[in-house]
Design a protein around this nucleic acid. Structure first.
Lengths: 384, 384
DNA sequence: TTAGTTTGTCTATCGTATAAACTAAGTTTA
DNA sequence: TAAACTTAGTTTATACGATAGACAAACTAA
């Protein structure tokens, strides 16, 4: 056992990370501002900033506005120092984005697929990533990594243990992609990635404890506590789609009964409606079709039951509803809120926000891209 | 805004805390061992140890066994440097313990109460604590604090917002006790405290992510993630007793329907059995009374449903069942395990432990006492 | 002009961890 | 039994990073 030990190197590393983080967050910022806001001495800031300049993680632009004395030198985060690839593998699509270090999408590739055996998907991914790399502008660090979001159970070693809707078991996705592209690869569950995406760039930027509900064909949940993703012992946390909300309820494909996702997922909706597309349901509802309206409302209510459980469990700052069912916001928001009001403990409702995804279909891809960038920054600041 | 900044003082503080923690954990330990296991240089260890000796947080005993050279000086944690008071306020009792800094109980006071208006309870607590203080051995730091576990919703400012089974609302318990005894006071939800108690001294000592189920008159849950208590935004986390497990189920006192504690708590059991004591139910079961046996089994099954939800949500290392229903371990363990096996996702079951409380009725009192000690140690190491 | 202010750098100093020499006290070996 | 080796712990010198404060640069205000 070798416990965490503390020395000056750690101090420097952390201060450097702090300075960089401040520059990233408040982009046009001067050395003096950093010193004031961080509490570090201006000499310390100066030396750390100079190192970051040499590493091209930041750059200077001309002098800024004077506030009664010498004009400050304005610093910027060099979001183009490298690029990250974020991939969202869905049941009938693969979405692939190239982002800069701030999560802006530069290039986007989207491909529909009808069958999902692993070799097929791996081939598609390989082609998409290769074409992103070919089109990518040149930069100091190039591709800093590849992130992939998968609708299934992923362990901490980047192996997809089970993705029922893709028909995958024990897929060594991380290993395969690292062999193909020789860059760090991060594999995450799609809901975990979506949670991180919304927390970094979307609806959850101002909050500490966020539960993100990925309500699609199934339901998965991403748990952000104290701004960090909680993964559980093996990385399997958030399988709340298989939370029992009806002990005598209908059987679920997982072998249990009364699971939340058997009532509140897109699949459940389509089954109830006996139709085959969420979009057509929404179109019908917009045409004032009473049945569609009612069914969407029921889905909202069922979602509300599960969210009640989430709120009473986690006492979060915010619950974010994302993925496909967020498209039906107009029809499900009201029943969700009503259900919460009627069931959830009063103290837990105070100051608690329920929001819908802001990133839409990009939540997952941007989330994994952000994981990649985070790892890169941590590694870069450390080794110098 | 003043962000966390890093300097040498922090380094020293953390290293000192690390050294102290190692001494606490591996009690008979030498300076050389600490250096090896921590990775710190032996000179550093030596100087930190000397400071801790001056503060009387540790002490030396004679030389230990030689391992081929000079004999090491054995260091011990001075568990008698001060004492903590842990109080568990239940619906019909107040339990009050005096512990040393390692959580050993020196004195214990137990008092049954039949009604629980706040002034009455406060008076009882005051008397009990005062007599503990009177009987307490003298020590360098004396009483380092008082911790109280309460069956209700406690905010982070130590105010009991709601304790339905005690009939309390908005009780300024922390303030009142600090005024009475002039020492730091920590108020916590009973389940949170129990979780911490079991993690520190009981069934959960070897695990990182633990969910402790306090199954008593109601059900509360304490959440330990990465060895730390998770409290949520306001401190209200873990109200999983009011997780809906049956959407069309029976009404609960909270105003909702189908709450877990309406099915799996002691209250639920007594209602089903139409009797008034868990102990008599258990006695009957031991006399091979079929009805009692069956009812206890049903409670086990219902507990299992909720634990299923917990495991799928948190992917914990361990679930600990504590409080009153743990007394019925013999009758409920089997149905719990069967329910999990039949419902919970297979990957989540692997390496997952389900255990029963080891501290019994002391979980909560020892938990709050441990909170107090933790705060004291952190404070002591910092200021020097 | 001149004085004051703000930004940023440079130099000296301080605090902490570390390396290495050293002392202390044992064990092993010839 | 003495010499060589081992291990424990301390002392002294050094390295490294943050900080304080002096300083220079570049601006504003009067």
């Amino acid at each position: 056992m070798r416990t965490m030990t503390w020395n000056q190197h750690i101090v420097k590393k952390n201060n450097k990370a702090l300075v960089l983080q401040l520059i990233m967050e408040k982009d046009p910022i001067s050395r003096a501002d950093i010193a004031q806001v961080s509490g570090l001495h201006k000499a310390t800031v100066s030396s750390l900033v100079n190192e970051l300049l040499e590493e091209e993680l930041i750059f200077e632009s001309g002098p800024g506005e004077s506030s009664g004395g010498r004009r400050p030198v304005i610093l910027h985060f060099n979001k183009a120092a490298g690029y990250a690839v974020g991939i969202d593998i869905g049941v009938n699509y693969v979405l692939c984005v190239l982002t800069d270090l701030k999560g802006n999408i530069l290039i986007e590739k989207n491909q529909l697929v009808n069958r999902t055996p692993y070799p097929t998907i791996l081939g598609i991914v390989q082609n998409m990533v290769q074409s992103l790399i070919d089109e990518m502008p040149s930069s100091r660090y190039g591709i800093v990594g590849i992130g992939v979001g998968v609708p299934g159970i992923v362990n901490k070693e980047g192996c997809v243990l089970l993705a029922p809707n893709l028909g995958w078991t024990n897929i060594q996705l991380k290993m395969d992609l690292e062999n193909l592209f020789q860059v760090p690869v991060i594999i995450e569950n799609e809901a975990n990635a979506g949670a991180f995406g919304e927390q970094q760039f979307g609806a959850g930027q101002d909050y500490q404890n966020i539960i993100y509900i990925s309500a699609g064909i199934g339901i998965g949940v991403g748990i952000i506590l104290n701004k960090e993703l909680y993964q559980g012992k093996n990385g399997f946390s958030g399988e709340m789609g298989h939370m029992i909300i009806d002990i005598n309820g209908k059987p679920c494909s997982c072998g249990s009964r009364g699971c939340w996702e058997a009532y509140a997922s897109e699949n459940a909706l389509l089954e109830m409606a006996n139709t085959d597309s969420l979009e057509s349901m929404i179109a019908l509802a917009e045409d004032r079709n009473q049945t569609s309206h009612k069914l969407l409302g029921e889905i909202g209510t069922y979602l509300g039951y599960g969210i009640n459980n989430i709120i009473n469990t986690f006492n979060p700052d915010q619950v974010i509803i994302g993925n496909r069912l967020a498209l039906a916001k107009q029809w499900i928001e009201e029943p969700i809120r009503t259900t919460i009001q009627n069931h959830t403990l009063a103290h837990h409702q105070k100051e608690m926000r329920i929001d819908f995804s802001k990133l839409g279909k990009y939540s997952t891809a941007l989330g994994v891209s952000a994981f990649v960038v985070e790892r890169f920054i941590k590694e870069e600041v450390k080794t110098s």
